[in-house]
Structures are given as C-alpha cells and as structure tokens.
Design a protein around this nucleic acid. Structure first.
Lengths: 154, 154
DNA sequence: CTAATACCTGTAGTCACTAGAGGTTCAAGC
DNA sequence: GCTTGAACCTCTAGTGACTACAGGTATTAG
C-alpha cells in the first residue's frame, strides 16, 4: 500500500502530488506562513492531515485564480472566520476581477498596435523594416501614449 | 541654460528624463550590456551623445511593447545590421504577438470564471459565501482544467 | 564658499517560486 | 540485519527587470 488510506498522516510528497504542486512549494508556503509549521515524525519528516490537504487545495485554487499570495493570506483568514460577513471576500474578489479586466484591456490595445505594425512589414531588408522603424520612432504609433506592455505582460 | 542644446554631451539624469526612465535603469542597462559602457567626464560621471538617446528610446519603446530584455537585445542586434533581411525581426514580432494573444485568451477565460463566481455571492456570512466555497472546491468551477491565473497575471 | 543637487559604486529587495548541494531517513527486498 | 534507492531534510542562490537604499564624490547656482 502506498498509504493512500483516508485518515493516516501523509508525507510531503503525497501532499504535494494531491494538490498539484511540489514539495519545495509546500516547504515554501510553510516558511512564509501560508501553512502552519507541520508536525514531524521521529525522523524529523513532515506529516500532514487531511485538513492540511484541504487548506493547500484552497491555496492552490486561489493562486490558480490569479490571487496574489498576500490576497490568499487574507482569503484564508476570512475562511477561518465563517460567521463574519463576506463583504471583504466579495470586495477582494471584485478588485481582483477589475485588475484582470484592466489587464485584458491593456493587452488588447497592445495586440492591436502589434498587429498593425507586423502587418506593415513587407519582408525586405532591416533597413526598410516597418517593425524596426516603429520601434525607433514612437510617433509612428497610432496612440501617442505608452503601450504598457512591460507591465501588462510579466 | 539646462544644457538641452542639440549636440552637447548630456548627463545620465537628462538621458533618463528624455527617455522616460530613471538613472538607475540606465546604469542597469549598461550593466547587462543593452547599452555600451558610457564615456566618462573628468569626475567619472557618464556622458552621453544623441546616438545613445536614440538607442535608449528604441529600447524603452520595445520594452513598452512588452518585448523581453533578451528580445530587445536581438532587435538591437538586427537594427545594427540594416542590410540583412528582416525575416528574423518579423518572426520575433509575430511570436510576441502570439504570446500576447494567448495571454488575452487565458485572461478572458479567467475573467469569465471570476465573474460567474462573484455574481453568485449574495452578501451573507463567510460560511455561505460562494467565493470561498468555489475556492474550497474546484468541482464547482465551470471548467475542470486549471485557470492558469498565476501564470497569466504577474 | 557653501549648500543643494546630481552623480558614483555596490548591495539587497521585489514576487512566487524553483533548483541545487550536501546530508539524513525511510521502505522494500534479500 | 544489510543494502540500496527513493524520499526527505536544511540552506543557499537563481529567475526578470528593475528599484531602493547606504555611504561617498562631483558639480553647479547663488
């Protein structure tokens, strides 16, 4: 048996594989306080309960939604206080949604500018390349504002 | 006069302000080799020509388009060889465009899921909050694949 | 001449992990 | 009991593209 039975303590490897992350990530989350310090067995290895599996699933799912680690910290805190009103949760999620929408907006403008520029390249020499020309002179862009690609990507 | 005359050597502060970045960024670009080592005056301070202003404008504009520093390095290299065919430029720009489009795609899927989730919250207690519930259980999501928000944002 | 400003170098911090070195513990087979 | 290999441990450094200091020097305006 590979110890997948329901209420036995599990090791970091199984915890990681059941939550689609790596042992390094689990140790990292413990270090930054997203997960509490794990119980250890006699040989100093971490042992986890089902409750930790659930907590880590929550964390991974929230991260997968694009919430920052700090936001996840707040969400966990709220989830730990179930009788409180969920206004803060709602507000956090709406702010996140607004950020995603803004990101889409900026990337769409950038995409249009890139498409226009790329479409104008006729495949000659670099000397007459429209892409290089546009990069050399912002006045050739359709907007005179920044594209914001450096922030909207990466 | 604040030394804005056309062909005099300028300092790092003026170079920075004319290219919408900071002196630290200029020094950083020099360090990583995007800009050549600057000439110095008697007091060891960097002095720049108009050519450097142009080069840095190109760099900033390309970064603003979202090209990575490595991509900018390649673009600069190509721009420095004007008689070569611009096929590589074109290919680099098209790959970048594809990346931007993919990013928009992923963020759009994420936005839809977030919108759906946020819309279901009725403002009660955390206990019955749909947002917390969805984060706790991926099966409540409309797709059973990852949302990829952690990679698509950030 | 003085004071404010701009500049210099070098280091560390950001974010959310990931990768590696160098050592220890565990589980299975013989 | 012994061996072997996988899994685990801690600690450090690296990623991208800057940004922010600290502690010192140069320039410039008045």
């Amino acid at each position: 048996m590979t110890s997948t039975s329901s209420h036995a303590a599990i090791g970091i490897g199984e915890l990681a594989s059941r939550t689609h992350c790596k042992p390094e990530t689990v140790r990292y989350y413990e270090k930054i306080g997203l997960l509490p310090a794990a119980l250890r067995n006699e040989g100093n290895q971490r042992r986890y309960s089902e409750a930790t599996v659930q907590r880590l699933m929550f964390i991974r799912h929230a991260r997968d939604f694009g919430f920052s680690v700090d936001a996840v910290r707040e969400l966990l805190d709220m989830a730990d206080h179930p009788t409180q009103p969920c206004q803060q949760v709602d507000s956090l999620a709406r702010r996140h949604l607004a950020e995603v929408e803004s990101r889409i907006q900026r990337l769409t403008v950038l995409r249009d500018e890139l498409q226009r520029t790329v479409a104008q390249c006729d495949g000659g020499s670099v000397e007459q390349c429209r892409i290089i020309e546009v990069l050399s002179d912002h006045r050739l862009c359709s907007h005179n504002t920044a594209h914001g690609g450096a922030e909207a990507l990466r």
